[in-house]
Computed example of a mutant assay.
Amino acid sequence: MSLVELADVSYTYPGGVLAVDGVSLRVDAGESLAIIGQNGAGKTTTVKLMNGLLKPSSGRVLIGGEDTARRTAAQVARRVGYVFQNPDDQIFNTTVAKEISYGLKRLRLDAGESERRLDEAAALTGLGDRLEENPHDLPLSVRKFVTIAAVLAVDCEVLVLDEPTAGQDQAGLDRIAEIVEVMTGRGRAVVTITHDMEFVARHFARVVVMAERRVVTQGRAEEIFTDSAAMATARLARPAIVELADRLGLADVGLSLDALADAWRSRG
């Protein structure tokens, strides 16, 4: 059973703006899934439907086989955690520790388990020495990790990251990649919506391409990024490694730089 399934889902905002039109996709346990497309393609609406912030105008959204129509937004968010693109839309506490702990209080865990989760989330996001700082005083790149830590602590089955790499340096990118690896290794799923094709190519196994409020195609990352027609339809640039492989006549080596280098050397 998929953790999340969207079955022919459409959503129209108040005022009549159609944002998602007949979208079907699934999210499985232990997988990393990227949803890519231009602004206005329907990506953000799609993930908000996943975590209950929005309810479909038609079609069904299933979380662990249960229809979200029968659940409150809070109940769905307990299973599908959403990290907003702008951390200032989520942060409201006066210390990093309080921000991370806020969701834990609603779970009514014992003190020892709450402290363990706080410490683990802080360690994974690099915030262990900043717990008593005011998150509003931190740089934007660090504030993003505060909101990620707050969702990690709740231990949702699905972690949704909205443009997580924006504004990050290489150390931040490496940390996000580690979070994806750790969470999928635990059997959780990680979903991202992003314009960062290079990051997706390196760290996400499956890709959904959206354009004009619909899914254009979906499949393994190496299949999608070498599908010139699908990328052109969505008006997306292919990752640099795919362009390089094409120029070298090695388009079938996948998305690994090491594999590309080995294939080039084997040519003699």
Score class of each variant (00 low, 15 high):
residue 1 M to F: 09
residue 1 M to N: 11
residue 6 L to K: 09
residue 10 S to W: 10
residue 11 Y to H: 13
residue 15 G to S: 04
residue 17 V to R: 09
residue 17 V to D: 03
residue 18 L to F: 00
residue 20 V to S: 04
residue 21 D to G: 01
residue 21 D to M: 05
residue 22 G to P: 11
residue 24 S to P: 02
residue 28 D to S: 15
residue 28 D to F: 05
residue 29 A to S: 11
residue 34 A to I: 02
residue 36 I to Q: 06
residue 37 G to K: 00
residue 38 Q to S: 14
residue 38 Q to M: 12
residue 38 Q to W: 00
residue 39 N to C: 05
residue 44 T to K: 02
residue 44 T to V: 11
residue 46 T to V: 14
residue 46 T to G: 08
residue 49 L to F: 05
residue 50 M to A: 10
residue 60 R to H: 13
residue 61 V to S: 03
residue 61 V to E: 06
residue 62 L to Y: 00
residue 63 I to P: 06
residue 63 I to C: 02
residue 66 E to F: 02
residue 68 T to Y: 13
residue 70 R to Y: 09
residue 71 R to F: 15
residue 71 R to G: 03
residue 73 A to Q: 10
residue 75 Q to H: 03
residue 76 V to M: 06
residue 77 A to L: 10
residue 82 Y to S: 10
residue 83 V to I: 02
residue 83 V to D: 06
residue 84 F to I: 05
residue 90 Q to G: 08
residue 91 I to P: 01
residue 96 V to G: 02
residue 97 A to Q: 00
residue 100 I to D: 06
residue 102 Y to C: 14
residue 102 Y to I: 11
residue 103 G to S: 09
residue 103 G to E: 04
residue 104 L to K: 05
residue 104 L to E: 00
residue 106 R to A: 15
residue 108 R to N: 13
residue 109 L to C: 05
residue 109 L to M: 03
residue 110 D to A: 09
residue 111 A to D: 14
residue 112 G to T: 12
residue 117 R to S: 15
residue 121 A to N: 09
residue 123 A to R: 13
residue 126 G to C: 07
residue 128 G to E: 04
residue 128 G to C: 02
residue 131 L to I: 09
residue 132 E to Q: 07
residue 133 E to S: 07
residue 133 E to D: 12
residue 135 P to W: 06
residue 136 H to V: 10
residue 137 D to R: 14
residue 137 D to N: 11
residue 139 P to Q: 11
residue 142 V to Q: 09
residue 143 R to V: 15
residue 144 K to G: 11
residue 144 K to Q: 04
residue 145 F to S: 07
residue 151 V to G: 10
residue 151 V to D: 03
residue 154 V to Y: 00
residue 157 E to F: 06
residue 160 V to D: 01
residue 167 G to W: 14
residue 168 Q to I: 08
residue 168 Q to E: 01
residue 169 D to A: 02
residue 169 D to E: 05
residue 170 Q to L: 12
residue 175 R to K: 00
residue 175 R to W: 00
residue 176 I to Y: 04
residue 178 E to A: 07
residue 180 V to T: 01
residue 183 M to G: 05
residue 183 M to T: 02
residue 187 G to I: 13
residue 190 V to I: 12
residue 193 I to Q: 01
residue 193 I to T: 15
residue 195 H to W: 13
residue 195 H to D: 14
residue 196 D to W: 15
residue 196 D to V: 15
residue 197 M to F: 10
residue 201 A to D: 13
residue 203 H to Y: 15
residue 205 A to Q: 15
residue 206 R to C: 08
residue 212 E to F: 08
residue 221 A to R: 05
residue 222 E to M: 04
residue 223 E to M: 07
residue 226 T to V: 09
residue 232 A to S: 14
residue 234 A to P: 11
residue 235 R to Q: 12
residue 236 L to A: 07
residue 236 L to M: 03
residue 238 R to I: 10
residue 244 L to K: 01
residue 250 L to S: 11
residue 251 A to G: 14
residue 256 S to E: 13
residue 266 S to V: 03
residue 267 R to L: 10
residue 268 G to C: 04
